[in-house]
């Protein structure tokens, strides 16, 4: 009996202790009433986690949100686990998202679509590059595409980390425009962007498609050459590399990241985040972060994001079926 009492006593003490520290200090009903939770649908260390933690730091340091903000890791299923988790939460939870939210659904790997959430913002984009070895016979994207048109299986193309991602689909779209039979392409999938770089440097593949952040340093060092970028304008630091548009393909292909809220958010809550995030992307710390990661500002507020996601869904739907991944 005594044992039991001690046990109960100790546990209730702890429960009480836990509650008092978790309680909120705000007395008014003003949003937010408790710490904000930012879901990174990935393990610590990856791009999504890094983005989430950078946002956390800037929002906190610049005092753009009241109260505390925590990062929660929910990895699995290319974001699926994290977004599923977000779906059951209230407006104090947010998650990082990208086009995977759209493509997972279209590829039949997820029930979730952007319509199950409140898009809050699109933040940044990376641009996608096509690179070939220094001694490659292809001087530009045109020559490469001509060869692929002749024999789509004659060239080994490397990308990471999965079919149906932006690196893959941007290449498919460009090749399609040139009239290449894209379902016959020889694509090798590597686990990470680093592996793709290695494969190209070692001459194990002929062409690689990857983010600018992965290819820029190699190009500048003369290790391999970038022959095309997916942006609308030529990029700073890579002025000699033409865009797709200059090489006869009418395509601008962003690889964006954004922020998502749970479904059924009130006008007031959306306005709150629009303000906080809108202010955040104006800060110097954010500019610095983007510069270090080779990201470009691609800010869209909540209303614009919803519209953007709708357009993107249609675009990906077409692209995926053209690539042969869906019917």
């Amino acid at each position: 009996m005594k044992k039991l009492l001690t046990y109960i006593g100790l546990s209730s003490l702890l429960i009480l202790g836990g509650c008092s520290s978790g309680g909120s200090g705000a007395e008014a009903e003003q949003f937010p009433t408790k710490p904000i939770e930012l879901v990174a649908p990935a393990t610590p260390g990856g791009g999504w986690d890094a983005t989430a933690r950078a946002i956390q730091k800037i929002l906190k340091d610049e005092e753009l949100v009241e109260g505390n903000i925590n990062v929660v890791n929910k990895p699995g299923g290319s974001g699926e686990v994290g977004w599923q988790y977000l779906k059951g939460k209230d407006a104090h939870s947010l998650a990082i998202n990208s086009s995977l939210l759209i493509t997972n659904n279209l590829l039949g790997q997820s029930e979730l679509s952007y319509e199950d959430f409140t898009p809050l913002a699109v933040l940044t984009t990376e641009w996608i590059s096509i690179a070939v070895a220094n001694d490659s016979p292809f001087a530009d994207a045109k020559q490469l595409m001509e060869q692929l048109k002749e024999d789509p299986s004659s060239i080994k193309i490397a990308l990471a980390p999965g079919l149906g991602n932006n690196d893959h689909l941007s290449f498919v779209q460009a090749a399609k425009e040139y009239g290449v039979d894209v379902s016959k392409l020889n694509i090798l999938i590597y686990e990470s962007g680093g592996d793709v770089v290695t494969a190209l440097l070692g001459g194990h593949v002929d062409v690689a498609t990857m983010s600018i952040s992965e290819s820029k340093e190699q190009h500048l060092a003369g290790k391999f050459k970038v022959i095309s970028v997916s942006s609308a304008e030529r990029l700073e630091g890579l002025e000699e590399v033409p865009t797709w548009q200059e090489q006869g393909v009418d395509m601008v292909f962003p690889h964006w990241r954004g922020i998502l809220g749970p479904p059924d958010m009130t006008e007031e809550e959306i306005a709150y985040y629009d303000k906080a995030i809108g202010d955040m992307v104006e800060t110097e710390a954010w500019t610095e972060l983007m510069k270090n990661n080779e990201w470009e500002l691609f800010y869209k507020n909540s209303a614009e994001s919803a519209e953007f996601l709708k357009e993107q869904t249609q675009m990906y739907d077409t692209l995926l079926s053209e690539s042969g991944l869906t019917d």
Binding site: G45, G46, G47, A50, A54, G194, S213, E288, L289, K291, N292, N293
Partner: peptide, 8 residues
């Protein structure tokens, strides 16, 4: 790598 890239 991810961490040091964040630091520039």
């Amino acid at each position: 790598l991810g961490a040091v890239v964040m630091l520039g």
